[in-house]
């Protein structure tokens, strides 16, 4: 009986905590959207300089690592499919497999996971450090809104950077598959390109693109939310930064599942 009550209470507490977190995230979302879409048109302004600064940080500076990893994954995918397809003498279909898998799934996912590690954690650490050092309080005392000042530029930059990176990553991944197939497996170059072009449809692009937009939202909000959760000192910053990466990757996979299912039909 006590075990039952205990389980019951624990479940309740967990769901209450989850509900509370959800409500906090909702408040954050409403505030951010308000300061991104509504307030700038009431003459409150947007900090374009900060947006550009963050855009360079999240987008341009991530390009080398995203490019490298996606190229390698494209090549790996080509090899793995060749392993199966060679048995049927169908190596020219590597192009279809690599193309569709890159565009629909792997390019958005890899970009999002890399950006989580690179920029999502940085957002959590930056906001957490500012909170610990009372910089957020200082902003408020000056009458400057932390949402407008800190979150909106990051949010906008993320929202632009990730879809753009994803599109580039798709091409690079396909290029990786192409290079391996043509130079290592001896697939005909024109055949490969033709097959890729025929395999890819608008719907595939829409799937990948939609996913990438939602991934951007997840990465930014998890980073911000965890950053504001930081209590205490440097230790708290470290803890919340780690937890931002874990939460973010989990939610990215979840969102991925939902959208893959939606576009399946």
């Amino acid at each position: 009986m006590t075990a039952f009550i205990y389980t019951f209470g624990a479940t309740g507490r967990v769901s209450l905590n989850a509900l509370y977190a959800l409500s906090r995230v909702c408040v954050l979302m409403v505030e951010t959207i308000n300061w991104t879409l509504v307030q700038p048109f009431r003459g409150r302004g947007l900090r374009m300089k900060a947006v550009v600064f963050n855009l360079v940080e999240y987008g341009v500076n991530s390009l080398p690592i995203v490019g490298l990893i996606c190229f390698l994954i494209g090549a790996i995918m080509a090899m793995q499919s060749a392993y199966q397809l060679a048995r049927f003498g169908a190596t020219q279909y590597i192009a279809n497999l690599v193309g569709v898998a890159s565009m629909r799934e792997l390019a958005p996912l890899m970009t999002a996971i890399l950006l989580t590690g690179r920029s999502g954690s940085a957002i959590a650490a930056e906001i957490g450090t500012m909170k610990v050092a009372e910089e957020i309080d200082a902003l408020e005392v000056m009458g400057l809104n932390p949402t407008k000042f800190l979150i909106v530029p990051k949010f906008l930059a993320m929202l632009i950077a990730i879809p753009c990176l994803t599109i580039l990553a798709t091409f690079i991944m396909i290029l990786g598959g192409y290079m391996l197939s043509v130079f290592a497996l001896g697939v005909d170059s024109d055949l490969y390109l033709n097959n890729t072009a025929r395999a890819l449809q608008m719907k595939d692009f829409a799937t990948g693109f939609t996913k990438s937009v939602f991934f951007a939202v997840v990465i930014c909000w998890v980073g911000v939310y965890r950053g504001f959760q930081v209590e205490g000192g440097a230790e708290g910053v470290g803890k919340m930064t780690t937890s931002s990466v874990v939460t973010s990757i989990f939610l990215i996979i979840l969102v991925d599942l939902v959208f893959t299912a939606l576009f399946f039909f």
């Binding site: 500012m130 005392v141 009458g143």
Partner: peptide
Amino acid sequence: ERIEVRKRVGMCFQGSALFN
């Protein structure tokens, strides 16, 4: 209204809280 008040108030924090 609070923003209007805050423009007329200054605060020095214990750890200075400068933007790093």
